[in-house]
Design a protein around this nucleic acid. Structure first.
Length: 479
RNA sequence: CGAGGUGUGGCGCAGUUGGCAGCGCGCUUGCUUUGGGAGCAAGAAGCCGCAGGUUCAAGUCCUGUCACCUCGACCA
């Protein structure tokens, strides 16, 4: 350890400085670099590879549920953005404007899309005429811009990468169902692909998307007990349809407005991966989104037969469909171990002269450093099991942490005290008034993360004012 | 936008009363090494964030400015 500290700029420990630990991992694992534009990051190959895998996992799910990808323009004319009142009020403070083309001032300025509801609506108004045109289940993979004042890699950047789904339906019921289906899809994606357990529920009115009737959310808990809004789905009702005149002729020859949804997951989910699974030695990646699921490290690779054996091992696993890195660089083995641990590679296979003689290799799982010897002729059966067990452990560990840090509180004093002293969420009643919600925010800096579906338990009272609770709510501090 | 902090080779830092810009890591080349961040040798690399000012002389003093980081407020 002392030698390690001497040799290498180590990652700040989580205990010492969580923010710094986070930034250290982003930079040292080569996920991203700062760019010359404040608040914008450069996704480096390793970070981009993670994002590509995330997009692939999600896109597969979108396609399987009947969604189609499209591509809308980067710019929104001011007049279009202003068509829906709540929407423009929510986003106007943080949009970037294009005012000139070359030297010429534009007749109408264009905003760089902060989200694309207005563009989809404008298009839908044009292409939707009949009930036969519905539903429209569109999605796009793009970047958007929000002129944030303070930024952090992945969690809050001025430009960020995401997918935004925008759908139009004949009925409110169908649109609400889509909103809930996509919420379920998001939750499944986070839990299975990213091994991140989430709470799901509805946002309060003050926390919901600008222009939405309802916003649903999946909330994850970071290692420091803070919440990360990981994905949201919005039921937009027919408000946008009315503002943009999106009407169709129904089976009964009546003209009706469509009901819409929108939903998104962004590159901030990479921040979530870091802060849920990472440890003091770096990143820990779930196999589904690890650029390399395993790294093969030859030991004493200059010796007769070692490199060949390593290549053979890597080749066989690659042929089985695993993403494999053979690290035959001229670094010391110990250096490679640390490097790939920092980068979160789930599984490491070491193979050296001793192993070759015994017909085996050494397998080490990233999350728990468990080391075992595996016969080379069994490796192709063992690797899928090792990887799947690792994902299960990662999920179980994160879930246990989440659950053990949810505190039920029924009075204001213990609510405030708990928020101040214990990292995590509080589950408590809320009367539904904005005053009580604002008081929580002002006095604790925590906010309502999501409302639990269904009626609150019998006799539950608002943790702020003591009146009967309308909702059971998860409260927490958030990124 | 408020409060605090930091700007010196790629990274982390030192730089005293103003007087030749340094150290560690990394990088390059060669040889020896290889089961937890190797050793030796020889190299390359710095408009000291930027702009003014004081001075014979500024990394150092003064003024302004910009950028970045942390903590708040705001938001994915």
């Amino acid at each position: 350890m002392s030698k390690k500290e001497k040799m290498v700029q180590s990652i700040t420990s989580r205990e010492e400085d969580f923010s710094r630990w986070y930034t250290d991992i982003c930079l040292q694992a080569e996920l991203c670099s700062y760019s010359s534009v404040r608040g914008c990051i450069i996704l480096r190959p390793y970070g981009y590879a993670i994002w590509e895998l995330i997009t692939a996992e999600l896109d597969r799910r979108f396609k399987a549920t009947g969604h189609q990808n499209v591509m809308m323009p980067l710019f929104i004319p001011e007049s279009l953005l202003q068509k829906e009142k709540d929407h423009v009020e929510g986003f106007a403070p943080e949009v970037a404007w294009v005012t000139h083309g070359g030297e010429e001032r534009l007749a109408e300025r264009l905003c760089v899309r902060p989200t694309s509801e207005t563009l989809f609506c404008d298009h839908y108004a044009e292409i939707i005429e009949s009930w036969r045109d519905l539903p429209k289940l569109y999605n796009q993979w793009v970047s958007v811009v929000r002129w944030e004042k303070t930024t952090r890699p992945f969690l809050r950047t001025r430009e960020f990468f995401w997918q935004e789904g925008h759908t139009a339906h004949a009925t409110a019921e169908e649109a609400v169902q889509e909103t809930l289906d996509m919420l379920a899809l998001y939750a499944e994606f986070f839990e299975n692909a990213l091994a991140i357990p989430v709470l799901r529920g509805m946002k309060s009115d003050s926390e919901k998307f600008a222009g939405a009737v309802n916003t649903y959310t999946v909330e994850a808990m970071m290692h420091d007990g803070k919440a990360l809004q990981a994905g949201t789905t919005h039921y937009l009702g027919d408000g946008f349809a009315k503002a943009f005149e999106i009407q169709y002729t129904d089976k009964d020859n009546e003209l009706r407005y469509v009901h819409q949804t929108s939903w998104g997951i962004s590159s901030r989910s990479i921040g979530g991966l870091i802060m849920v699974h990472g440890d003091d030695d770096g990143l820990v990646l779930p196999p589904a989104v690890a650029p390399y699921q395993l790294v093969v490290i030859p030991v004493a690779q200059h010796k007769e037969g070692v490199l060949e054996a390593a290549r053979d091992l890597a080749g066989r696993l690659e042929a089985d469909g695993f993403r494999v890195l053979l690290d035959d660089s001229d670094r010391m083995p110990g250096w490679k171990f640390s490097e790939h641990e920092m980068k979160g590679v789930p599984l490491r296979l070491e193979i050296g002269p001793r192993d070759i003689k015994e017909g085996r290799c050494v397998a080490v799982t990233r999350d728990n450093r468990d080391k075992r010897e595996i016969p080379l002729d069994r490796i192709q059966e063992e690797v899928p099991v090792l990887l799947s067990d690792l994902r299960d452990r990662m999920f179980a560990r994160a879930k246990e942490r989440l659950e053990s840090r949810i505190y039920e509180r029924d009075n204001w004093d213990s609510f405030v005290e708990t928020l101040a002293e214990l990292p995590g969420f509080i589950l408590a009643g809320w009367c539904g008034s904005e005053d009580c919600e604002t008081k929580v925010k002002e006095e604790t800096t925590a906010s309502s993360r999501c409302l639990v579906q269904g009626e609150p338990p019998e006799g539950m009272t608002c943790v702020v004012c003591g009146k009967p609770a309308q909702h059971q709510v998860y409260w927490g501090k958030a990124y």
